[in-house]
Amino acid sequence: MKHLLSVEDLTADDIHRLLELTDHMVEVSSRPIPKVPALRGKNVVSLFFEDSTRTRTSFDTAAKRLSADTMNFAVSSSSVNKGESLRDTIETISAMGVDAFVVRHKSSGAPQMITRWTNACIVNAGDGWHQHPTQALLDCYTIRTNLNRRDGFDGLRIAIVGDIKHSRVARSDVQAFTRLGAHVTLVAPPTLLPPSLDGWPVEVSHDLDSLLADLDVLYLLRVQRERMDDALLPSLEEYSALYGLTPTRAARLAPHALVMHPGPMNRGVEMVVDPSELPGSVILQQVTNGVAVRMAVLFTLLGSGSAASIGESA
C-alpha cells in the first residue's frame, strides 16, 4: 500500500489486516511509556488546509508514538495565503525530504491530486465531502472490539443518520461497514442525501423510529447550521424532532446497541440526549482508538518488517 486515499481502494482483507495491527498499537499505547522506535528517522508532515484540531492531534500523537519526526503545516502560517499554488507547496515541502503527508483539505480529491507531485506517501485525513478513511477504520475498530466482531460484521444492522450528502465520514463508513458485511441503512431527509445512490450497497429510510429497536449501531452525523441557508432544512428544531437522538429514542435502542458520532457533536441537534448518560455511547472510545488506528496506518505505509518489530520500547 503506497497511499491511503479512499476506503474504496481497500479490500475486506486489507481492512482486517489494519484492524489486527491496531490491536498491537492499542497494546503499545497502554504501556507506561507508549512509544516504540518503529518509524525512527521517518518524516511525517501534517498538511491541514482546513482546521481540525482533533484529527491533526490524533495523527501527530500516532506518529510520535512510533518515533517519527513530525512537522505541522497549517495554512494560516504558510505561503498558501500568499497565493502559492498547491503544487508549489507540495513540491517545496517534498524537497525537504518527506516520507508521508497527512492531508486534510476542504476540496474533494485534493489528496489524490497531490500524489502527482510528490513521491511521499499520502494519507487522506479528510477531503471535502469525499473520504475520511482513517475515521472509517477507527469506527470499524470500535465496533469490532465492543461487539466482539473480530471476523467481520455479517448480520450487523447499522444506521447512519444525518447529513449524508455533505459527509466524507458517511461515504467512507458505508464502504467500510458494508465491505465487512454489515447491513447499512441511511437515514436522512431527502435533501441531505446525495443526488444518486446508484451503486451504494445501502437501504434508505426517512423513519428513524421504525429502525431503532433492531439496530446494533446508531451512527449520528453532525448537522451544520449553514444547511438552512441552502434550503435543505426548515430548521434545526425540526431536524432534531425527526432525526435527533432524544431520550425517548435512546430508550428504544437495544441494550447492546452502540451510539457513535465522529465529532464534533451538536448538542441539542442530532444529540439531544446527554451522551454521558447513554450506556451504549462509545464516542470517546472512537477518539482513543483513532490514535491506534492511525499508528497502524502510518506503520503499514512507512514501516519495515512485521508487527513484531514494534514490540520493544523506545
Binding site: G109, H130, P195, D198
Partner: peptide
C-alpha cells in the same frame, strides 16, 4: 454532472 459519479466522488453536481 449531477449523477451517480458526483455522488460517489463527493462533488457538487450540475444537474
Amino acid at each position: 454532472h449531477e449523477g451517480s459519479c458526483c455522488s460517489r466522488l463527493g462533488l457538487p453536481g450540475w444537474p
